[in-house]
Design a protein around this nucleic acid. Sequence first.
DNA 1: TCAACGGGATGATGCGCATTATTAGCAACG
DNA 2: CGTTGCTAATAATGCGCATCATCCCGTTGA
Lengths: 353, 353
Amino acid sequence: MPRRRITQADVAAMAGVSQATVSFVLNDSNPSGVRISEETRQRVRDAIRITGYSANPAAQRLAGGLTQILGVFTYESTFPQGGRDFYGPFLVGIEHAAEKLGVDILLFTSARVEDGRRRLTRDGWQRLGIADGCLLLGQHEDRGELQHLLDTNYPFVFIGKRGSDGGRLPYVGVDYVAATARQVDRLAALGHTRIGYVGSRGTDQPTLDRVEGYRATMKRHGLTVRFVELDDVAATAAEVADQRLTAVLVAPENSPEELADELERRGLRVPDDISVLLLGQPLHPRPGGRRWSGFSIPREEMGARALHLLSRLVAADTGRPARRDAPQVPDDELRQLLGCVDVDAETLAPPPA
Amino acid sequence: MPRRRITQADVAAMAGVSQATVSFVLNDSNPSGVRISEETRQRVRDAIRITGYSANPAAQRLAGGLTQILGVFTYESTFPQGGRDFYGPFLVGIEHAAEKLGVDILLFTSARVEDGRRRLTRDGWQRLGIADGCLLLGQHEDRGELQHLLDTNYPFVFIGKRGSDGGRLPYVGVDYVAATARQVDRLAALGHTRIGYVGSRGTDQPTLDRVEGYRATMKRHGLTVRFVELDDVAATAAEVADQRLTAVLVAPENSPEELADELERRGLRVPDDISVLLLGQPLHPRPGGRRWSGFSIPREEMGARALHLLSRLVAADTGRPARRDAPQVPDDELRQLLGCVDVDAETLAPPPA
DNA sequence: TCAACGGGATGATGCGCATTATTAGCAACG
DNA sequence: CGTTGCTAATAATGCGCATCATCCCGTTGA
């Protein structure tokens, strides 16, 4: 039988005070010069202890305006590519930050999935309103969806750099350009000259940045830029061999495992004959898998930073006109680019003699 | 400029109807014979679409409705032991189920962390109220916390079998007894007779069940039960060698990697000289790590099943006495035990000749 | 003696929603 | 012409809490 929960009114009755007094004691606050004597406070506290009262969060939030819930919307459905391997680390960081901020995290899993990716439209983005603000992660194209968020002044932060189309959007991304450049530097320092970049064309920001970092740094070193189109892994490996490359850069989404296996099948040992640097973490880390050299993306930190930023944005635009002194978020915090960390493992070596 | 949330009143104004009408249209219900014409319904729906209205969950809850949000409470803080590796798979399953059920998932990250574990007491369990029900995962002892949930008739489901102390609680767990028994069978079938169980004492359900499965099955095969206490890994390895065991069972939390390494350091090859079966997935799967034979826990399925069960419980006891026709959840669904899957990899072999 | 004051507490209000009770309008009926 | 019956919608209420405006009462200053 649904026993009615204890309310502040119950406590108040027991302590012989008003509901308002209980509220004041609980929050230990005096918003408008309200004073409660220590004696009364104690009486209320006792009543609270005896009754086992605990606040109804729904009511608290309803009265307070904010829900203290921050949302996370993932465009890609997590399943098809075992995506959790990719998003997990972000979530860890997000969770950590949420803990510190004292907010709960709402995963928008109710949005319709179309073509293997979630839509923010229609049913989807309306639910966002539940949270005070929202983190957006994953590749994204639909500009219209975004516009709505902007129009309604809904606080949100992207995880991952936003380029041309969304240059004005708040995000926390990583500096792929610099990180990729450093890989070329590492190879050049070891004496590599025939350094290739294996990948398929893409217009997504990470790809663009990696390519730019590669291209610019090769030029800086006076080396020839060698792009190897990735279509069939076997053909690609052949191409790599033909060009007598001694090192290649590969992004995680471009089948590095398969490529390395194929290269070794052709007699090219990794890394003795050819170094393979991974531009990010492997998509499917498996026990027994290769331990890649390259760089790693600070996903947990990204998640944490993004949530903190979002939290600030929310604070900056609380609906309550009371707080006109709301802190504005400076532009350089609105778009953050974090650095990657170089990884020294088993797929980097000097070029063969 | 402060963003005031759109409310039903706003929608109502735009559609030229009353707030109540909007509520009726939204819930598509007519509790006491209320009727809304299709024409009006459409007008309201349009207004909802245009304004981008979304219900405030706090208000919904306060008014006694459902939020279509299901909560997930993890006792262990995810960080200390890279817990996400452990909880991640559950979440994947939960997310999948949530998608199908059309509900959102709320991670209770706001609860205070004490001694590296979250507390459901005080601040903690109150927030639960936002969600329609809650999944509980992780080891847990505090009976008092639970009692509160039971008293308030709050729907919840444990992930992981609950034993003596909570024999009456809803849970979705795995059959460790049977799974462990099967491992002994596998070893016995290969001719092993000196089969040990390495572990430290524990009163947690998984440990109790694994031990029972081991003990019972060894007896059934007429083999001597050999427990090897795990304290110092080196000492344990020595003990294993001394007893001339040809196979050991190890739970993931009992440092299987270190043990295997130590055994090999002592000249015992795995699995040629000694088979090591892992009773669950490795806690920290790393590229380059060992590929364990043993069994694996269907964590994703557990997560999904648990969420489905929770969903049913919520439906069954919407606290409102209005729905006396609420479907009851049969006892055998309330406590589910799933089977584990045997894994055949690289750490199982016949005993040395 | 009366106004001014300030500590101590309360009543009233509204947050956004679901729901019940009630009303308005209209057709059919006796 | 009054009554019933039915549809379509609204007004009103309360959920539990935070907060503002107000009030009460004992002290002080003039």
